[in-house]
């Protein structure tokens, strides 16, 4: 196995692990911010020193800097899609609980639904 393959696999599993397990809001948010500034730094550095990415790519055994960027982008996308999926799941859950409370309160007469009160007249 080439060094790049090993490094990429490690990054993939770390990203997966963070996406799936680090769901404590504070930690996840801190992780995302660190990743964001890291990325920002790399982007700026690669603009200032165009040869840098290619040299890093060579170190891990990838031919071109552009290829390294593609691989890392794919991993980033994977992380983002999993996080967004889980985030939407959490939101769905919260909306369901909210709607259930409304439905049960309406049923017990604690609140009244405008459509239904006019209908019962």
């Amino acid at each position: 196995m080439r060094l790049a393959q090993f490094v990429l696999l490690v990054i993939i599993f770390v990203a997966l692990w963070f996406a799936l397990h680090h769901r404590s809001r504070t930690e996840a948010r801190a992780f995302r911010r660190i990743a964001f500034f890291l990325l920002l730094g790399i982007v700026i550095a690669s603009v200032l020193f165009p040869g840098m990415l290619t040299r890093i790519a060579h170190v891990v055994g990838i031919g071109r800097g552009a290829d390294l960027v593609i691989y890392l982008t794919a991993i980033g996308l994977l992380y983002v899609s999993i996080s967004v999926y889980l985030k939407f799941g959490d939101m769905d859950r919260r909306i369901t609980l909210l709607a259930r409370q409304i439905a049960l309160m309406e049923d017990s007469g604690a609140i009244s639904h405008p459509d239904r009160t006019s209908e019962s007249k």
């Binding site: 909306i95 369901t96 709607a99 259930r100 409304i102 439905a103 049960l104 309406e106 049923d107 017990s108 639904h113 239904r116």
Partner: peptide, 24 residues
Amino acid sequence: RVIVHPLNFGQGAALQTGIEAALA
């Protein structure tokens, strides 16, 4: 006796709501 979800959530959500209403 009809309990109304304001939005469509799915059968699992509806069952849980019905169970909670019955338990009341």
